[in-house]
Write a protein that binds this DNA or RNA. Structure first.
Lengths: 359, 359
DNA sequence: CTGAAAGCGCTTACAG
DNA sequence: CTGAAAGCGCTTACAG
């Protein structure tokens, strides 16, 4: 069934040299004289020989594969990131093994352990809330790794992150300047390093002003459940005048909730989101976003990974990229009459086909 | 640097048996007596031994890896598909190697060849326009493969596809019933099997009526270029009253173009899209879509792949899943006065921040 | 049921 | 510069 692929021995035989010599021309690991070298090249060509990466990996304890671990691919931002890595990696002869942590440290650890058993040449990791055991396992294996997007304790690992503090600072100050006094930040997990940085910056921006900030943690991944949670908030009264969503899924849920409750955006509530979704410009009003330079992240991370693979003991490399605030129609100035103090929104749109799980 | 992982020999030594015996309990490839078996299990546990898949793969010419090849991950639908595969595969102890064809047969072939050199246990392929050489290479290698989403010539390969004819038939008939007489179908590549099926169905629906159909092929992946192309159409006069987009990227470009040209949807033009984007319900008007059951596809494809890996010579397995038409506000009835005959839209919105490449 | 041994396809000291 | 040979960690006929 499986016709045997040519091996290095076939090439050697055809070129009239030893396997070792073929290996040397393949790897440039030793000088091979001009004509032998050419004979080897010709033989490789004639047989359309390609190396068996399994054998190579077994011998060298290192395969030309880089493992990419992100929480989910269905999040547009992570999908784009993986896409970008696939591009740059395959142009350098690397395969991508993709694993998903589901933002769960246990799964993350297990999946990374499996990746390590393949002796991958390197790992790109968007870490979960608590990646300690995962990072320890990677460190123990000596596999080069670059941490991306979410910072971990500095000093041990190469990483490329965003300047979340600055981005949030910009966003918060912008809102405050527009008259907002009650700002809510909706997050998946408070404990996430990225989130903590953002919360700190939000509070710092509010310090010394009369601005009230509030963090809403919504651990669920289920849109219905999230919307139900939001509905509670808006019905509870004392509604914020501006909401910052930590990712595009929350932004989407918020927009749908606005619609259900007939909350006008931005007249009643302004909205701004981290994690620029591709639909930001399609919705009405257009969504204000913090734009993260995905391609730049991927390129930088790859650069770090390559240099780490070449030099495992070099100094730790760090990059903090800039994220841009892009204000659009979903954010507006607060007029005194509209400050929502003590206001409730509970007009559930009767015609909405929405199922409201849990309500 | 790299502490040596325990090997099967370490386990054997600790359990006081031979490596072959350990292998047998690992694989259940031969009966091992109760107590020896337990000793092996204990040793594995004590050393937290895991098999080296590279060695295993080298020996068996088969690794517990499945290769997934899609055109792009940044397309939401494909990302979801890959996500779904990762889930089901890793729960069965398989890794995922992900490659991207960029809808280019040459790249597809090259990347698949590389995949094959890893002796992957199976492949899931969303084929490019012309996957002939790729499929030949896969067939030659004897690797189990399931073709997904886009049908290829029947009979050689397991595949799970959608009933595109029926979906398009429903969509077209729905539009015709609402009074539409000029329908445009915007596609990436006419030659794609999926697209051809849809075009055929569209024409069939129009046959015997006074309905004019038109296919617009836009090979570009650049949103600016696509919009420029669309602007031409709308300026050209004799604008269609209904447009069907073959994927969500086109739908997005169309919505933006409507906005630029102050075309009202659905009053001036109705819009409907294959490939349900996650923002379909966020835009105004809500987008009408043909909804494809992603998870079901993934599950079915995996089922086929597993059974193919178990039985390489079994009969070809085929599934054609049903895609639902979900009508929403973006589609409406045509009133006689609004039939756009000879109409042009060329009010370029001056305030739009849009860059119009090429115009 | 169990072990000794060959072999999967490479790479890499080690001689020469 | 080049070749012979060992070895990476498994699996699998083959004896027993």
């Amino acid at each position: 069934m499986k016709p045997n692929r040519p091996t290095i021995l076939d090439v050697a035989a055809r070129a009239g040299v030893s396997a070792g010599t073929v290996s040397h021309v393949l790897n440039g690991s030793a000088k091979v004289s001009g004509k032998r070298r050419q004979r080897v090249l010709d033989a490789i060509d004639a047989l359309s020989y390609t190396r068996n990466p399994l054998a190579q990996g077994l011998r060298q304890l290192r395969t030309p594969v880089v493992g990419v671990c992100v929480p989910h691919t269905s999040v547009a931002y992570f999908a784009k990131l993986v896409d970008a890595f696939e591009d740059v990696a395959s142009s350098r002869g690397f395969e991508i093994m993709q694993i998903l942590s589901h933002d769960n440290p246990r799964i993350e650890h297990k999946r990374i352990a499996s990746l390590l058993s393949y002796h991958v040449g390197g790992i790109i990791l968007v870490p979960s809330v608590d990646p300690t055991s995962t990072l320890d396992a990677i460190a123990r294996s000596g596999t080069p790794v670059v941490v991306v997007d979410r910072p971990v304790a500095q000093g041990r690992f190469d990483q490329v992150t965003f300047d979340n503090r600055n981005a949030m600072m910009q966003a918060a100050r912008g809102l405050i300047r527009l008259g907002h006094r009650r700002i809510m930040f909706v997050v998946r997990q408070r404990a996430l390093a990225t989130t903590r940085e953002r919360i700190t910056a939000l509070r710092a921006a509010a310090r010394g002003t009369e601005v009230t900030t509030r963090v809403l943690e919504c651990a669920s991944y289920d849109a219905d459940a999230i919307r139900a949670r939001l509905v509670e908030i808006f019905r509870g009264g004392n509604v914020p005048t501006a909401i910052i969503a930590s990712n595009s899924m929350f932004a989407a849920c918020l927009l749908r909730t606005f619609e259900m409750l007939r909350i006008r955006c931005p007249q009643d509530v302004s909205l701004l989101a981290f994690d620029q979704p591709d639909w930001a410009e399609l919705v009405t009003p257009k969504l204000s976003v913090v734009r993260q330079p995905t391609m730049e992240v991927a390129r930088k991370a790859w650069e770090f990974l390559i240099s780490r693979m070449d030099n495992e003991t070099g100094p730790v490399q760090t990059a903090e990229l800039h994220a841009d605030l892009v204000l659009a129609a979903s954010v507006s100035r607060v007029r005194p009459a509209e400050d929502n103090r003590g206001k409730r929104f509970d007009t559930l749109a009767g015609s909405s086909p929405l199922r409201l799980g849990g309500l």
